[in-house]
Every structure is written in structure tokens, then in C-alpha cells.
Design a protein around this nucleic acid. Sequence first.
RNA 1: GGGCGAAUAGCUCAGCUGGUUCAGAGCGCCUGCCUUACACGCAGGAUGUCGGGGGUUCGAAUCCCUCUUCGCCCACCA
Length: 885
Amino acid sequence: PSSIESELYQWWTERALFSPDSHAPGSGQPYVIMMPPPNVTAVLHMGHGLNNTVQDVLIRFERMRGRRALWLPGTDHAGIATQNVVERELAEEGLTRFDLGRDAFVERVWAHVRETGAAILEQLKAIGSSADWSRTYFTLDEGLSRAVRETFVRLYEEGLVYRGHYIINWCPRCLTALSNEEVEKEEVDGHLWHLRYPLGDGSGQVTVATTRPETMLGDTAVAVHPDDERYRGLIGREIRLPLVDRLIPIVADEAVDPAFGSGAVKVTPAHDPADFDIGRRHSLPSIDVMTPEARISLATPDRFQGLDRYEARRQVVAEFQAAGLLDRVETHRHAVGHCYRCNTVIEPRLSDQWFVRMEPLARPALEAYRDGTLRFVPERRGDDYSSWLEGIRDWCISRQLWWGHRIPVWYCDATGCGKISVSRHDLNACPGCGGPVRQDEDVLDTWFSSWLVPFSSLGWPERTPDLATYYPGHTMVSAPEILFFWVARMIMSGLHFMGRVPYTDIYLHGTVRDTQHRKMSKSLGNGIDPLEVVDKYGADALRYSLISGMSVGTDVILDPNDLEGSFAAGRNFANKLWNAGRFILSNLPGPARPLAGSHPRVIRRDELTLADRWMIARCDATVVEATEAYQRFRLNEAAAAIYRFIWSDLADWYIEQAKPRLYGDQPGGDVARAVVTQTFDVALRLLHPVMPFITEALWRRFPGRSAADSISVARWPRPDARAHDPAAVRDFGVVQELVGAIRAIRAEYGIPPGQAVRAAVTAESPATVAAVEQERGTITRLAKLSQLTLGESRERVGGHAALSDGTAVFVPLGEAIDVGRECGRLGSEVDRLARLVQSQEQKLGNEQFVSRAPSEVVERERQKLTTWKEQREVLTRKRELLGCV
RNA sequence: GGGCGAAUAGCUCAGCUGGUUCAGAGCGCCUGCCUUACACGCAGGAUGUCGGGGGUUCGAAUCCCUCUUCGCCCACCA
């Protein structure tokens, strides 16, 4: 593979075959897939491998079907992830980004990005991805940045972007706010501490339960349910908050669940979203007791200041215990949020952030699903989509990072003005008073640029020809993990800014996992490097193995400890195909004598042998099967159908039976060559989306191809009614079965491979008799016979078999045979048939069945019974002849 | 706590609208073959209470209920 793949890829690129511009304009309807842009610093892993292979299969399929296929690639600046990479680099030099300052840091990230240069795109090429690289974008490009500003400003003008003071998810390591989607909930076994809070007048106490005792430093109330009898008398009274010695009120709030814990809850408006709401309802103060790094801040007693949140937790608990105020500690399983980039535990934090009001955007997106505009594969994923939209919450889009699209908002500091300006272009002065302005320090969520990709990558907000041609697109191929991050948001932005959904088909494939069903990851060390597989077995083998191991909606399991086992199927198949191709080519007349004149379409039908007709019919059936499977996103089924056709039908049977005709200058050779060339050509085209390299390499070698011809733009095969030939399929099937039966008898009796045997065939059906006559040579050769006779043999000793159509086969073996053994074999065969006959008679004797089952089913079952009875009689007679006891 | 998915050969999985792919494929395993396209191959073969139990039906791997195990998603009971 390595000797052909990179060379072919280069040739494809030089010919610009992956660009729809290279096709004649208007030659077909556009077909567009937007590639999920990998992070600019990413290294190719199996997830990318699977995702991009699927897209490549679909785009190549549609390209060959004549569509103007555009697969649009790009990279994502990946705010947090990329900033983290460069900050780690700096840390090795003993520096932080603050040492460099904002401008120098951003320049440093750019340098890093330019230097590593989206290596992942090169890696995608190595697995054969036929994206249109001439259109590659980067989410921080000028054009896409303009689109980001345009959308921000428009949404602001429409009242859909706002600034607010709320509890958000804060990562104390990345030092930024995160959206709800960027928080990964993880179930952990934690504790529930029950703390006693004394009443202000010392007349008693109230027990509250918490999973985060350190937050009590910022408590500003205790809340109980208004109807809770136990606390009715306490509402309005005060608690003397231990450790900080502050008087806080007891309030009544419906949000409190009387059944949980003690029914009383501590309220920390600055550190819990639910408490924040309670605080607002009761006009409670918010006391922020933590720094951005999640250390205890100044607004607390001295001894806590500067403590890490977990140290503070221990200390608070210890002090409660010492004071006799720790009621009890329970173990408690609950979900804790973690940062999706660094896995640090999220701290809910009160701060000023920018938000997008989502409900107005979600409504049309939901409608597009409900009215059938959007189709999900697998269908059930649509439920995830709609339930997420139904419960959608506002999107926090500001990030306290330096790497990203800076928020286009300027604040005027002039006294008496204080205007906030949201602008499409940079401002130097306040539009209100002309005074000095400063831009918002924050950048936008990375996903705020990627949600625009279906149109921003085509030039929006400019009205470009690309935008007119390629929006809306068609298929989105993605992992379910980014359904909410990206896919759903693109639909919302597409509807809002373009008035149409960006695509209609959403294919969500599974996840690549190891044999323990763990997601492959760098930290677990259970990953497989796709490039290592490409190196060892070739991109085609990688692709085939991924595609064939993947059915709609299920995960792909691969064994990182057994690359051979995981990819042998693909490698073996590629090798098989290569050798079949070499064999066919070596038996064709040279390129000087094109085969046009011996094309099967112009060969007279009466020149075709039964095997030829069967091959052509099988080929046609495979075209139908594979095409339908590709269309239905059942890529593994397409791959399996083509595999079966190439390996079993073409290599094992057709080529084997045609060899005498193919060798040298034999009669009928031109017909066999035409059939094998035609059907192999079709097979290569059908397989090309999955195994692009080897199919191209072989296809180009066939006579009649010009140097410029590429299979990647060759026409997709169409079904041909003339190929339909059920009789040939059935009759050649009998031939195959017959050969198999004789081979089995040979193996059973240990006949040496080199020794020919005789065979007698007793067939009732005239079609079978004719088939055996027509393929006499094939049967003789493939079963290694010295003689093939039709009709009953007078010999008694030998091997017997019965075919499914009732035809009996007898292989006389003279003294070579062990009579006792054959008697035993026949006996068990007769028994098997007798059991079948019995259950079948029972079934047909059942009046319910005969009357209620469809008549054709009943008829079919009757037919089976007849065949089995006949076979039983034949074998019983043989037993008698052999003198079996 | 809610919702969803999976469980079929040693392994990874097909089996779509109950009855002709009905018990399958690939890998692995066993036997025999270096038969000149291919040993990454050829030929032949073994292996299954279709997770357990119940039900619907003339008929269930397939539909329904239930249990068990595994996985995923969602969720502000502190």
C-alpha cells in the first residue's frame, strides 16, 4: 500500500478531482458535507479516522453518482484547548501568559499554530480523505471572524445577546467560564455533611445538609419550605452562622424539598445556582468567598484565607466537629461537574458574562425536526435533539481567555456617559460622547464560531457564489458527543441567519472503543494510531475494517493490543483484490487491443455460458444491493455485499471456472475476458468509496484507460434489466452445491487432492440436468473428477450426498471406502431427514397453520416436505444397496 | 432520579417488515493442500439452551412484559 497510496493521493490532488469546480458547471446537483473541523493542534486518532472515513465514503459515492460533491474542510482554533497547549509550553520555560502579556501571548499562539500547521489535515489526507482542500478555512480567518462579529452584533440588536450577572460554570484551572455543555457530569461517591446551625438567640438549632461545607463561609440565609410544619415557627428568625459569626435569616422558599435531609437548606447565593435564585427571591446578599483559582478569599475569617477549597472543606468540617456542631456525615453519591478540557472540578461562580437567549432560536430548530425536515440516523437520536432543545438554557458565550474572537463590545469610561457599544468594526472612541473606550477583555466561546461554519465557510456575510451554490448542504456526519455543542447549534444559526437548515440528514455514528468498551483516549493509553495502521496495512485496510465493523448507531470496538486481529480483514481483502486484479490483467490482451468489441453488452446472449450469465446477474444484484445500502447509510452492508461479490462470486467461482477459457487462446476466451473485465470494473467502482487507493490503482491499469482517467470521477454503475437472470442464479447455484458436495465427500474419505474420482448425478429437474451438462467441464475440474455421468450408478460402494433441490450425488469409491463409515454417515443423514419430515408433517397437519398462514408460505412448506421425503427415500435405498444393517 | 441502547460461535458483530440467507460473516481454532493470481491463500470442518423467566401467535433470535448484566445521555434534592 505505501508504494501506491501517497503517489495516487498526489495525483488526485494535482488533478483537483476533489473540487466540485473541476466538474463541468451545472453538471449535477450539489452535494455538500461540512467536515467537523478538527482542533488546529489535534493529532489524528481513531475517532477522526472513523468520522472522516464515513464522510469520505459518502462524498465519493455521491461524486461518482454525478453530484457536484463538496466536502468542505477546516480547522478550529479551539480556544481553551489551544491556549492550554501553549500555556504548558510556557510553563516549561517557567513562564505564565501573564508574564508575556496579552498581545505577546496571542502572537505566541499564532506562531505555534503556524508552526505545527494543522498537521492533522495532512494526516486526514493519509487516510484518503477527498476533501476540497482549496477551500480549507480556519475559524480565526478574517472572513470567519467577520461572520462572528456580524452574528454577535445582529443577535445583540435583536435582543438575543445580553450581558448578565449570574452563576456560571467556572473552571478554576482554565480560569474561565464554561457553557453548560462544556461541563461533564461525573457520578462520584462523596459525602453529605449535616451541620448544626444555632439560632441567633441561642434557643435551639437547625440542621442543614451540604456536599460542599466550605461554601458555608458565604451563607446568607437558611431556607425551609413554607408548608413544613417543623420549621413554621422559625421562619423570619435568625441563625448565628458558626465560624464567621454572622446573623442570617431563615426564609421560606418553595424550592426547598422538605423530604431531603433535614428539610432545611443553607443558602449560598454566590456559589450555587439554586441558592442564587433563592437569594434573588428574598433579596439576600451574595458573598463571594472564593478567588478565581478556587481558594478562599478575603471576605472570610483570616484563618481560612488562601486555603484551597478542599483544604477549607476539611478545616470547616473539623471546626464544626470541634464545636460539637457536626451532626453526622453520610456517604452520598452525586454528580459533580468537571471541565471538559482539563477535568478539573467545576466551581459555580457568580460573575458578569455574555449570554445568548436560546429559546427563540430553538423554536424553529425544533419545528424543523417535528415537520420532518431533519432526519436523524439512527432515528432515536432525534429524541436527544428535541429534548435538549425543549429544555434549552441560555448559552454563556464569554470566555476569560486570550485566544479567540474578542468580544466586539466597547465600554466608555467617561463619567456621565458609560455607554456600551456593540460594533461590527473596532472602535477608538465612544460613539456617544467621543471619549476613550476600552474593548471587553473576553473572547467568545469557540463554538460561537463553529456554529456558523455551514455558511461562514462559504463567505457569509458576503453574498458569494459559493454561498449561493453550496448552502444549504445535505449530510452532517458526526459523533453523538457533539450533537449539542455543534450540530444542533448549526441548525439554529442556519435557520436564524440563512432561513434554512444547513443540512437535512444527520448521521451520528458510534464511538471507537477498546475491548473493555472504554473510549480510546491518550490518558488511558488504549488508543490506536491510525497512521500506524496505514503504515502497516494501508489506508484501504484501515478504512475497510472501520466501515465493515460499524453498523448504524453502534460503537466500533477495536483491540489496541491486537492490531493484526483488528485490521486483518481489511488487509486480507485488499490483498485478495490486488491479486485478483493482477490475474485478470495478466490474462487480458495488451492495451493495444481495447476490449470495446467484446463488451458483454454487444456479445450475443447465446455466446454466454451458464457461469457467465450467473456472474452478470450476480454483479447486477450487487450493484442494487450496494447502492441501496450506501444510500441508507448502511455502509457496512454495502462493504459486505461487495466483499461477498468479489471474494466468493468473482474470485472463488467465476475466475476459477473461467480459467481454462482465460489461459492462452482458448475458445470462448474473449467472452470470459469480457465478462470478467466488465464485472471486475463494476466491482472496483462499487468498492471505490471504501477502498479508494487500491481500486484506483487497479482500475487505471485496465486497457482502454487514458492517462487522465480516474475512478474517483467514473460513473456509478447502474442496474441493468438485461442482467436479470433468476434461472442462471438458480442453476449455477446447483452447480456450486454439486461441486461442494463432491469436495465434501472427498475430504470425508481422505481422497488425496491429486486423485481424480468419478461421480454420478441423479437429477429429476430438467433444468438441473441441463445445468450439469453445460457446466460439465467446470464441475469436472473443480471437483477433480475423472468422469461425470448423469443417471444412477450400478455401483454400490461410495459416498452419497443430496442437494437441496433433491438431486442425488454418488461418488463410487470402490474398495477405497469404509462401508461401515458410509453406512453410519447415511444413517445419521436419514435420521436428520426423518426428523425434518416429521416436524414438517406436524406443521402441515396443523389446521391452524394451513388455514391462517399465507398460501404461498404453506405451499413453500409443502415443497420442502416433498424434497426431504424424496431425499430420505434415495438415501434409504442407498443404505439397502450397501447392505447396511 | 428520568430517558435510551446493547446482550447471538472463543473474539468483534450481521440478522431491517415474525415464515427461503434462519441460526450467519470476519477473525481465531481443527484437518488436508506451496493446485503458477493470492499461504494476507485454497478446500473441508467443529463450535450456539440467540442473557434468564413469562406472554402474544398456527409459527418468535425477531413482537410484548419482567428480571439480570453492561454502556450511554439528560437532571440545580442541597
